[in-house]
Design a protein around this nucleic acid. Structure first.
Lengths: 341, 341
DNA sequence: CTGAAAGCGCTTACAG
DNA sequence: CTGAAAGCGCTTACAG
């Protein structure tokens, strides 16, 4: 590791200029400076221009925290995600970040590492300094979320709580397509390798898998695993094999990728010996051999929609969300007829 | 997309309690409440306890912005990354986030989408409300960075500027290993598929590749591409082939992965017809066929070290950084003897 | 159109 | 150990 030298001379950081500095410089009052800078057109145009120029000349920069105190408006949003390791949350973050940036909003970000207690304390700590909060894949209880939503506007993604705005991609279509796909390939018995018990989205996906399978007369079992990671997927193989199913859907692509990898290492043919359907269609799904069939989720769009919704709650540019957020099956090579090995 | 109903009753958000509320409740002054809550042990133990209890009972929560005004201390750090799409920056972010969270620090996050102008304006906007700033893969000029560093402490990652603290993984060892590896396989002519011209890290990597190759008597060429993405890597194939090299190192794994994919699609044997060495060893590198040989970079550790360094600059728990941050070659299947197809 | 004044929620010398 | 007071950098009725 190289480290550039730190400054020899201790950096003299002069206090940044305030509106009083530009007031002094221009001869106007602080009130007028404030208006010139923030209420364009409400004061004499000449005055405004002179003040703006002066402000620019001394590098005046508004102090957002000082403004927030009297107004209560921070122009800052918080986003909390439960697991930064999961590419899906990264996509959500990315979507949220894009609309925040384009709205000149500051974005405060934290991860709770799947720990509900940490999530709650972080949310409480952050709430006073933001206008609103996005909870992505929250592991909190419904009541805890409702409590937070009493303090400041909260919008959920990939989670539903009665009474709190939420953006959740519709999972039904994609899952039905996947189940139809498997059935048409000849599978009669399928499994769902499930994710964290605390994950609302996991429950939701399992419910729909269950209903879809039952509605089509297929046998279906849930195969719970530890972590929704590649390692979790790898660890699931014995149970998947023992279950006797010929195809599985998984909670997410990480699990599917892990499963795919160990299956191949164990010389089990995919899809001949086992068909695998992932979920979310993340980066890497089309890199494997065989490539991974996956139910695609518009995660970036969900993140964007969530941030827009939050802005709407705050009566800012309520720019309507981008229509339906649907999942849909992306068929690749990891699914095929059973016993085709 | 489903959206949970918004509250029927318009949520009455009561103003959050202040220290004056707990002062009133306990009969002590606001000054004493402030001390009880923030300077443990400096006032009567009984008093302190009573005040803490009262504060907890009404759900008092410190307003960080109100505190920041008189103290100038925000307990908030900003991290700016140039491209959220690049997994490496995500790793850096993740490392920084982890130490921030464990230090009870708030983390403000923004992406500049490879746009220097946006990076500069975002940095300026954020600086007043944070204690310090991390610039990851900054695309600013040295002078711009120096200007920012005059305002608040700045720490760089994957970029060096004289006079500004920086955390940069040592790239030499990994690159030398890679060049040795290629030479020992029999390659005599290698290429470097380079990344963004604005990227300091790209220049640095090229320099070391160049020196290493020359020192070993190998022929070496730089092959510049547009974007450092998979698509960029795909687009680079014709130029790589035209250059006549038998092996390439790439600026990063995304480029390598793109190149690998099109090469195979074009029925070029990897490594027989072309050996490929990626950089950073990101998620997905061991998922491909063939798996990708890559120079591993400890990105999460770099992010952590950068945040620790920033804390050090601010005289907070200067917990020494975790020793040397080295790169090292991870040999997989995408490299082999030339002409072995 | 412009200014003086009060107040946002804290902290911290300064007294007592 | 505790309190009264001033001040952090803004905004915004209220006057003029």
């Amino acid at each position: 590791m190289e480290e550039a030298e730190t400054d020899a001379r201790p950096v003299r950081r002069k206090a940044p200029p305030t509106i009083y500095d530009v007031a002094k410089l221009t001869g106007f009052s602080a009130s007028t400076v404030s208006r010139a800078l923030n209420k364009p057109g409400r004061i004499n145009a000449k005055t405004e221009e002179r003040i703006r120029d002066a402000a620019a000349s001394i590098g005046y920069q508004l102090n957002p925290m000082a403004r927030a105190l009297p107004t209560g408006r921070t122009d800052t949003m918080a986003v909390l995600i439960s697991d930064i390791t999961n590419p899906v949350y990264l996509q959500l973050l990315r979507g949220a970040e894009h609309v925040a940036t384009s709205s000149e909003l500051t974005l405060v970000f934290a991860e709770s590492q799947e720990d509900p207690a940490l999530e709650l304390s972080t949310a409480r700590r952050l709430l006073p300094s933001v206008d609103g909060m996005l909870l992505f894949g929250s592991r909190l209880t419904d009541d805890q979320i409702l409590d937070l939503a009493e303090i400041k506007p909260v919008v959920l993604a990939n989670r539903e709580v009665e009474g709190v705005p939420a953006i959740v991609p519709e999972v039904t279509v994609g899952i039905r397509q996947a189940v139809d796909h498997l059935q048409s390939l000849g599978h009669r018995s399928i499994g769902y390798v499930s994710g964290p018990a605390t994950s609302w989205m996991n429950r939701r996906r399992w419910e729909v898998v269950f209903e879809s399978a039952v509605a089509r007369g297929l046998t279906v079992v849930e195969i719970p695993i530890g972590d929704a990671t590649m390692a979790g997927g790898e660890a699931a193989l014995p149970r998947v094999l023992a279950s006797g199913v010929t195809a599985v859907l998984t909670y997410n692509d990480l699990v599917a990728l892990g499963l795919l990898r160990t299956a191949r290492a164990a010389r089990i043919d995919v899809p001949g010996g086992l068909s695998i359907v992932g979920f979310d269609n993340v980066f890497g799904a089309d890199l494997t051999t065989p490539t991974l069939t996956s139910i695609g989720t518009p995660s970036t769009e969900v993140g964007e929609a969530a941030m827009r919704r939050l802005l709407g709650e705050l009566d800012r540019e309520a720019e309507a969300a981008a229509g339906l957020l649907e999942t849909s099956l992306v068929v690749r090579e990891s699914t095929g007829p059973p016993g085709a090995a």
